[in-house]
Design a binder for these strands. Structure first.
Length: 867
RNA sequence: GCGGGCGUGGUGAAAUUGGUAGACACAGCGGACUUAAAAUCCGUAGGCCCUAAUCGGCCGUGCCGGUUCAAGUCCGGCCGCCCGCACCA
């Protein structure tokens, strides 16, 4: 029996074939600025992956989105840079080394190879010629050179700082690695330890980072707000309160505080120091009670719930300070657990009447509460104090707007005005100055870890800290390390850290800390732009469209913004604004239902099968509970392996589905039936082209109504898809493709007069499908004899005349309710439309015998008759 | 507590400047083709009421109110959910 003519599209055969064709044509290689001609540039980038070894559906969605943008830009004539690489340093490699005895480097490069093979199957338009991994010595050597340049510029310093210390693993943990006060790996309670750490002066750029982030119009509002809150600017007064009486030798005679409410200075009732304030520590040295109090404060957990419940704790030092405006008055100095050492100066003045925390504290320790702000409206006043007598009647602190009272020279002023008057006065008295305080703190970059970029400095007993000379870079990680001892293998290595001082030649020691891996991802996009050509770097930067998860809204995206500024200021990159990413899109996650077996364990989707309305375990037949729809994760076993999907349906189906159902910024739920639906659609599209492949394009277009109608559908669809892609509304673009395909399918019933319009539509459809389903588009393109490769073809040109209709259908409302529809010429005048509408039988039924009060005619939109 | 976002059918969602609410898809239902199945194609679908059926009517975008000829969209006030930050002075 002869083989029947193929009536189905076979992705398994077609997809590899077309990828090979693209590779042969070097289609996705970015052109150098010199070769680009007049084409504008478009740098499209997705956040590069950590090489865990397996691609997951979240990757597929992320890279599919970037690919839509990159391929669309290419079709629109841009010179596109769309590179890929590996964020390759990090803890999982060391954990693998500890658990399985593999070298972190071997483990990482094996994972890269495995993932690259998976990447290849997705049909992404990537320029692999610029690939690198951040653990390549070439890359981190360059990072070390940048570090030294930053150091020269004064952007790097060392200081003692508190860190999270895991006493079992003997290492510092990042804040994210501390879960409920315990180490995420060891489960041991984390201790606070003081260690000498390296810091970047990101706070030098706080103002600029804050100001500029507001101007990034192509960033999501949410991310801009999160960064602004993280930087946390507040204007206020930094001032000193003189301590009354004799102070012990070597101790400051003043206490410096920061406040945003200098207008309430007359309401001050005490001073509070942080338990970690240097003065507190000094006093505690010879005061057992105070030391015990400090220990008590340290016990309170750091989790949100703990802080919520934590009562206000205080310790009276017996010390007093002088009130600046009322020298005869003194204020007691307390140690209070709610005062943080990490913000401002670690000390505050308290005005209980107008700050809830101060209020709670004052109530507990029976301190005066003196109202100095009179609320603007009576309701607010009565809520906060029962009668206008003395402050004891207050029920809560009043923090709203109002007028200053009980405050001598500030009386009667509005809060803002009072603030500036108070600041000026304190400045005149020489007790302080108006300042701006940021929540943002300098970036601690030291990690006591092996698998990271070594910090390129040498410690010499005589010369102190000496930078490694540029000629000696990169400072490479030693290959022969062991992980059998806890702690940093670089410290345990027998010889690596021994060296000679570049300055004096005496024996010296290398820094054994490595850089936080966020450094690696803070400048990789500049390296993609060019390894060593500053002009090419300047040509590509900034990234025009960056795509990634919102989980990086603060850390990565803030560090990168700092890095490009620092690089600019040391002359490493020509980027005046300092902004690395002109456009940012944060995509949603891929979620999936979760399943639990009768004994409570999680089950994989593949372990269950349908049974009537419910689900049962495939093996045992036991009932399965369907749980919440959650982010795909190994622990909940609700992952779907992209490789399996590609084998079953093809890459195009996977790409299509993750983009089709939800708006890109929202989560999308992976469902088997949804994927099957996408696969069905692939066949449907293919059949449109397969049917045409048996016909010949007559070339000249008929002007029959049916042909023109079909052409209108096609041209409007191209237009709609174009804008939808530009606005990141991929789900809308996909809906349009569905409608368009149905119209082409229907046209198969038409006669020869629509044949040309069908060919035109198909040719346009193939090109519009390319960003989403590039393999299928290519196959379809070849079925209708398209010229060259579809992935290289230009975006279809729309004929404007086909976008506007000759006649329009208008709904007719009577009193705002739709009663009829009329069809009128596009050019019809308002009067004509009104006359036609009033003559419509369905309308007459509602207006007969009534007074027409008004007729609103919005041409092209609607008619509303008011009776 | 502060900041941001969201609330529309059984489900995911459309509706771009106020102008026919529910496009498109998933699941469902009905039908065609088939010996049968798969595959494919076509149709149907917010709720309630009236009717034998058609026709028709009313209600409907979290709740209450407002502006307007017209509100998912704008304004005021509530309720609920999600995300981020959080004793930040």
């Amino acid at each position: 029996m002869g083989e029947a003519m193929a009536s189905r599209y076979d992705p398994q055969a077609a997809e590899p074939k077309w990828r090979e064709a693209w590779a042969d044509a070097e289609l996705f290689k970015a052109k150098s600025p010199a070769d680009a001609g007049d084409a504008p540039k478009a740098y499209v980038l997705e956040m590069f992956p950590y090489p865990s070894g397996r691609l997951h559906m979240g990757h597929v969605r992320n890279y599919a989105m970037g690919d839509v943008v990159a391929r669309h830009k290419k079709a629109k004539g841009y010179n596109v840079l769309h590179p890929m690489g590996w964020d390759a340093f990090g803890m999982p490699a060391e954990n693998a080394a500890m658990e399985r005895g593999v070298h972190p480097g071997d483990w990482t490069y094996q994972n890269i190879a495995a993932m690259k093979a998976q990447f290849a199957k997705l049909g992404l338009s990537l320029d692999w010629s610029r690939e690198f991994a951040t653990c390549d010595p070439d890359y981190y050597g360059e990072q070390q050179r940048l570090f030294l340049k930053f150091m020269e510029k004064g952007l790097v310093y060392q200081k003692k700082a508190k860190v999270n210390w895991d006493p079992v693993d003997n290492t510092v943990l990042a804040n994210e690695q501390v879960v409920d006060g315990k180490g995420w790996r060891s489960g041991a309670p984390v201790e606070q330890r003081e260690l000498v750490q390296w810091f970047f002066r990101i706070t030098d750029y706080a103002e600029d980072l804050l100001e500029e982030v507001q101007k990034l119009e192509r960033w999501p509002e949410k991310v801009r707000t999160m960064q602004a809150n993280w930087i946390g600017r507040s204007e206020g007064l930094q001032m000193r309160f003189p301590i009354v009486g004799q102070v012990p030798e070597g101790q400051d005679s003043e206490i410096e505080i920061f406040t945003t409410r200098p207008d309430t200075l007359f309401g001050a009732s005490f001073i509070a120091l942080s338990p970690d304030h240097p003065l507190t520590i000094k006093m505690a040295a010879d005061n057992e009670d105070l030391e015990a109090f400090r220990a008590e404060c340290a016990k309170v957990g750091t989790s949100e719930a703990d802080i919520e419940k934590a009562p206000k704790l205080g310790f009276d030092t017996g010390m007093k300070v002088v009130h600046p405006f009322r020298p005869e008055e003194t204020l007691p100095v307390y140690i209070a657990n709610f005062v943080l050492m990490g913000y401002g100066t670690g000390a505050i003045f308290a005005c209980p009447a107008h700050d809830q925390r101060d209020f709670d504290f004052a109530r507990k320790y029976d301190l005066p509460i003196l109202p100095v702000v009179k609320p603007a409206d009576k309701d607010a006043a009565s809520e906060h104090w029962v009668s206008s007598g003395d402050g004891d009647d207050m029920s809560a602190a009043y923090t709203g707007p109002g007028t200053i009272m009980n405050s001598e020279f500030l009386d009667g002023k509005a809060i803002d005005q009072a603030k500036s008057v108070a600041i000026t006065k304190i400045e005149e008295m020489g007790l302080g100055e108006g300042t701006v305080n940021y929540r943002l703190r300098d970036w601690g970059v030291s990690r006591q870890r092996y698998w990271g970029c070594p910090i390129p400095v040498i410690h010499c007993d005589d010369c102190g800290i000496v930078p490694v000379p540029e000629a000696d870079l990169p400072v490479e990680l030693p290959k022969d390390v062991s992980f059998d001892k806890p702690g940093n293998p670089l410290v345990h290595h027998p010889t690596w850290k021994n060296c000679t001082c570049p300055k004096c030649g005496k024996p010296a020691q290398r820094e054994t800390d490595t850089l936080d891996t966020f450094n690696d991802s803070s400048w990789y996009f500049t390296r993609f732009a060019s390894v060593d050509d500053p002009e090419e770097r300047a040509y590509w930067l900034p990234v025009d469209q960056y795509v990634g998860g919102v989980e990086h809204a603060v850390l990565h995206l803030l560090y990168a913004r700092f890095f490009t500024r620092a690089m600019r200021d040391v002359g490493e990159v020509d980027l005046p604004s300092g902004e690395p990413f002109a456009g940012l899109f944060t995509q949603g996650m891929v979620t999936h239902e979760t399943y639990k077996s009768a004994d409570g364990g999680w089950l994989q989707p593949s372990e269950i099968e349908a049974d009537g309305d419910g689900w049962i375990e495939r093996e045992s037949g036991k009932p399965v509970t369907v749980g919440a729809i959650e982010k795909m994760s190994k622990s909940k076993k609700n992952t779907v392996d992209p490789d399996n999907i590609i084998v079953t349906f093809g890459a195009d189906t996977a790409r299509w589905f993750v983009l089709s159902d939800s708006p890109p910024e929202r989560d999308v739920e992976w469902t088997q039936s949804g994927a099957e639906g996408a696969a069905r659609f692939v066949q449907r599209v293919w059949s449109v082209f397969n049917t045409l492949s048996e016909a010949t394009d007559p070339g000249a277009s008929s002007d029959s109504d049916a042909a023109i109608a079909l052409r209108r559908v096609s041209h409007k669809a191209v237009q709609a898809i174009d804008t939808a892609i530009e606005e990141f509304r991929f789900n809308s673009a996909i809906a349009t493709v569905h409608e368009w395909t149905s119209a082409l399918k229907k046209a198969e019933q038409g006669g020869d007069d629509v044949l040309s319009a069908r060919f035109e539509g198909a040719s346009m459809l193939a090109r519009c499908l390319t960003p989403f389903m590039p393999h299928l588009a290519e196959e379809c393109w070849s079925l209708i004899g398209g010229e060259g490769l579809c992935s290289a073809a230009a975006w279809p040109v729309v004929e404007d005349s086909l976008l506007v209709e000759d006649s329009v259908t208008l709904p007719i409302q009577v009193n705002g309710k739709r009663r009829a529809e009329i069809s009128v010429a596009k050019t019809a005048s308002k009067d004509d439309i009104e006359a036609t509408a009033l003559n419509e039988p369905a309308v007459k039924a509602f207006i007969d015998g009534k007074d027409i009060k008004k007729v609103i005619v919005v041409p092209g939109r609607i008619v509303n008759i008011v009776v």
